[in-house]
Amino acid sequence: MGADNLDDSLTTQTENSPRELLARSFFFVCAFVSILTTVGIVFVLVTEATTFFSETAGLRGVTGPTVSIVDFLTGTEFSIASEQFGVLPLLSGTLAIVVGAAVIALPLGVATAIYLSEYADPQTRKYLKPALEILAGVPTVIYGYFAVEYITPLLERYLFPDIGFFNALSASIVVGIMIIPMVSSISEDAMSAVPDDLREAGYGMGATKFDVSTGIVVPAAISGIFSSFILAISRAIGETMAVTIAAGASPKLVEFGTVGAGPVSVPYPDPAYFLEPIQTMTSAMVQLLFSDITGGGVAYRSLFGIGITLFVITLIMNVLSDWVASRYQEDYD
């Protein structure tokens, strides 16, 4: 660079030189892809789902069978063959998986988080954390196979002799195992963020490590713990392959028994539901795929009806998790 074109080189090397503009535009386009993805998901779900619901199908010029939104949300029968598309049996199945998985993953996940954050020495943590990550990393289709091939026979032999070949229980066990790391890692982050001052204040008052862990750290990190619960449950709702393989394909509503006598009878869901084959929203979607995928018939369109329901539920839970984490966060500064 000669001295005569110094001015030139100064201006070409600033924030708005072509090179900088090109780099900035490239990075911006990359970041914008994520917005486009969201727009794409919402666009596809809405355009296809509106052709499924009878309230909106007319506007889209769709002829052929449709289902009204009310029937879809309150229908108690789901059958592809007879074109009955009530989502309640599927919701009931999803709920069973979620409850089963939560019973396993929430306590184990929180206990793991307490252990990793308060008790484990750095060396142990170094080995335990990648091992936990593997639990979440095992492909879910493999979890489904594990449930059918190893867990169901085990349950049949030792606990429930009349369990079905496909059943909700084994599926919810594997889903529970796979969401443990989600609970433990987010909860552990929240517990590690609790300042040491609080712990030391506890010790100064004569508290033991047990008292400090359960009485100070857990309450202080409670917002992060709840937020991890919600995220893990949201993941369990969206889990597809394990439940498709292991939980069967028989959509049915949970039955209610009653407990109590005379006028005071309280209905409770029948736990035998767990031993039977069920169907979740996600596994119904997989089954729909095999009935009619290219034709664009009512089964294809119902796929998007269920899809948008699933999307809205998980979106609400993600937002809720964020809100819980920030709303109830203790501020220590």
């Binding site: 969201t38 998901i41 296809e48 969206g238 899809g307 699933l310 964020d322």
Partner: peptide, 19 residues
Amino acid sequence: NIANLAGVPSVVYGLLGLG
């Protein structure tokens, strides 16, 4: 947006691909 995308079930991404 990215945080929410990370929580979208994979089967819904499949619907994006299909549709």
